[in-house]
């Protein structure tokens, strides 16, 4: 079994975090992203994450140089074959139609019999691949915590996912030192759903009281022993991405999931999180 080169269709959503995890463990990430701004924004998120790790002694400058050299950018979809990728990860925006059309293109046009990993945070795997060929080689995944250092990944199989596909996907995450936990196919899985709930509660509290984002995260971290505060995690995911998560979940239950005014206002000001230097919290 070989998993040495990982294809990424898109550099949005949790794509940069997964690219970082792959190159950190010596794999090559082959990224297909036609939008130059999105690609470079993704690269800059990875660089910021690595710099943050260096600042916190987790990596060295040499590690950074080696990691960045393992990222290959391709502008033609067919170049995935040239790079002989072993697995492909969809990392487009969190929108059901976009996810569906991406999955369709991978199945129809990528003439490679390799596992396909979807990263549908708030949509079920069945809803993304409904009516498509290739179900047996598809899984849906969500790494937790969201960014940048993953500890575990939630793994969702379709009703037809083959045992070979599961085995290769598990081997891939084993190489990344990430544990796989199989969960049922529900929109939002476990991590994203709980994170969204925590952020929505935080937004309600910030609206109704004087609590600040820093205070909320501090209580969650120190009091509830969370690795990172939920608002920090949302900032790292990007509030524009996070808004899409909530919107997709609202299709399941609009009474629970509604984009808070505070997130709309922050995005309106361009404060989309860590990548913008400001979100719920300030990163400058």
């Amino acid at each position: 079994m070989r998993v040495a080169r990982v294809g990424f269709y898109g550099m949005r959503n949790i794509g940069p975090g997964l690219v970082q995890s792959a190159v950190n463990k010596g794999l090559t990430a082959v990224v297909f992203e036609n939008n130059s701004d999105v690609y470079h924004n993704g690269l800059s998120i990875i660089e910021k994450n690595i710099d943050n790790e260096i600042e916190h002694w987790g990596l060295t400058q040499k590690d950074k140089k080696v990691m960045m050299s393992r990222i290959e950018h391709i502008e033609r979809f067919s170049d995935f074959q040239k790079f002989d990728i072993d697995i492909i990860i969809e990392s487009v925006e969190e929108n059901l139609e976009v996810k569906q059309s991406t999955a369709k293109r991978i199945f129809d046009e990528l003439n490679m019999n390799i596992p396909v990993m979807l990263t549908a945070q708030t949509n079920s795997i069945e809803s993304v691949i409904d009516g498509l060929e290739g179900k047996e080689r598809t899984v849906n995944i969500h790494p937790v915590p969201s960014v940048p250092i993953y500890k575990i990944v939630e793994l969702i199989k379709s009703g037809k996912t083959s045992s070979s596909t599961t085995e290769i996907v598990k081997y891939f995450f084993e190489k990344l030192d990430i544990k796989c936990v199989e969960v049922e196919d529900n929109p939002g899985m476990v991590g994203p759903r709980i994170l969204v709930a925590a952020v929505l509660e935080a937004c309600d509290m910030m609206r109704d009281s004087t609590i600040r984002a820093e205070e909320f995260d501090h209580i969650m971290k120190k009091g509830l022993k969370m690795y990172k505060g939920p608002l920090t995690m949302a900032d790292e995911i990007g509030l524009d991405n996070f808004k899409l998560w909530i919107e997709e979940l609202s299709k399941v239950d609009a009474s629970v999931y509604k984009v808070p005014q505070i997130i709309i206002e922050l995005i309106g000001k361009g404060h989309t999180g860590v990548k913008a230097g400001k979100g719920f919290l300030n990163y400058k």
Partner: peptide, 8 residues
């Protein structure tokens, strides 16, 4: 410095 075990 709020370091994780891995960073330490």
């Amino acid at each position: 410095e709020d370091l994780t075990i891995e960073q330490a």
